[in-house]
């Protein structure tokens, strides 16, 4: 009884000590983890890159589950791109290496070539601004999937839109149109690009096709933004023609589009494709208002 009584408080003290150590350790863990996170964040993407081995090695190490690893890497690409874009990043250093690993793990994963090429090629902040890397990715995709004609379409598109190399674009569209199952408009596109180069109609046709075929929201949204920008550009060219006409008729530049409506040149005040009214900018030319959601830089 005496021994038990003596043992009792000792155990309680031990329990108390253990409890205190446990709570304090947990409390200390939080700032420590935060410090580690800060340290790792400061290292940035370069640190992340160091852990990326080649797709060929990963393929060997996957013990036959390379398809699953490719899916994991593809999801990483999507998350990486989405996070960077939402964070307003202008650099996407990991996008190329991640796409390379994904496609080395699963050369048949065509969405990785298609999605990857568009976002690699697009100028920052919409993409990585690496059209040459996008061309390489698509060429690898064509070698691995020679009968998938849509990769030729994407290759032609990069030449057309990002590199403004219309001769190469026409050649690629023509080659793609000869693949099995290729749609007729590829041939028309080859002819149109060869004849007109970078005309608005050709651009609209290309982006419309991308919008129509898009099998994910990011590509669809990007295509829609480009189509709206093209529409706004066309609108503004027409409005500029009317503004010139007004100036010739009245003898002075118009101060607002209301004056063009009053003069009978327009039925209503014009609005851009995002439903925000156009304004007359410096030099008396039609321009987008500050609240407009149209990004004309996409057309640069």
């Amino acid at each position: 009884m005496t021994a038990a009584a003596a043992k009792g408080p000792r155990i309680s003290r031990l329990r108390l000590a253990c409890g205190v150590v446990l709570v304090l350790s947990f409390l200390a863990l939080v700032p420590l983890q935060r410090a580690i996170d800060r340290e790792l964040a400061a290292q940035g993407d370069a640190g992340e890159l160091l852990y990326l081995p080649s797709g060929a090695i990963l393929r060997r190490l996957s013990l036959g589950h390379e398809g699953l690893l490719a899916d994991i890497y593809w999801t990483r690409v999507v998350q990486y791109f989405g996070r960077k874009r939402l964070g307003g990043a202008t650099r996407y250093d990991l996008l190329g290496p991640l796409l390379r690993i994904t496609t080395e793990l699963d050369p048949q994963l065509v969405i990785a070539y298609r999605f990857g090429a568009i976002f690699l090629a697009e100028k920052a902040p919409a993409g990585a601004g690496q059209p040459q890397e996008a061309l390489q990715l698509l060429r690898r995709g064509i070698v691995a999937n020679p009968d998938y004609w849509r990769l030729w379409q994407d290759l032609g598109f990069i030449y057309y839109w990002d590199l403004k190399d219309y001769a190469s674009a026409a050649r690629v569209f023509q080659a793609g149109s000869e693949r099995p199952g290729a749609q007729l408009w590829m041939k028309a596109m080859a002819a149109s690009v060869a004849a007109q180069g970078g005309g608005v109609q050709t651009s609209r046709l290309l982006w419309s096709e991308i919008y129509r075929q898009a099998d994910n929201d990011q590509i669809r949204l990007s295509a829609k933004s480009h189509l709206l920008a093209l529409q706004a550009q066309e609108d503004m060219e027409s409005l500029n023609a009317l503004l010139r006409k007004y100036r010739q008729t009245v003898g002075r530049p118009a101060r607002s589009f209301r004056e063009l409506v009053a003069a009978g040149l327009l039925r209503v005040e014009p609005r851009d494709p995002s439903s925000v009214p156009y304004r007359i900018g410096p030099g008396g030319l039609a321009a987008l208002s500050t609240g407009s959601k149209i990004d004309l830089q996409l057309l640069q």
Binding site: L68, D71, W74
Partner: peptide
């Protein structure tokens, strides 16, 4: 659902693996 365009491929790959 956190990936893009390969929902079924992921299910088949992960399920069979």
């Amino acid at each position: 659902s956190i990936s893009v365009g390969i929902e079924q491929i992921i299910l088949v790959n992960l399920g069979l693996s």
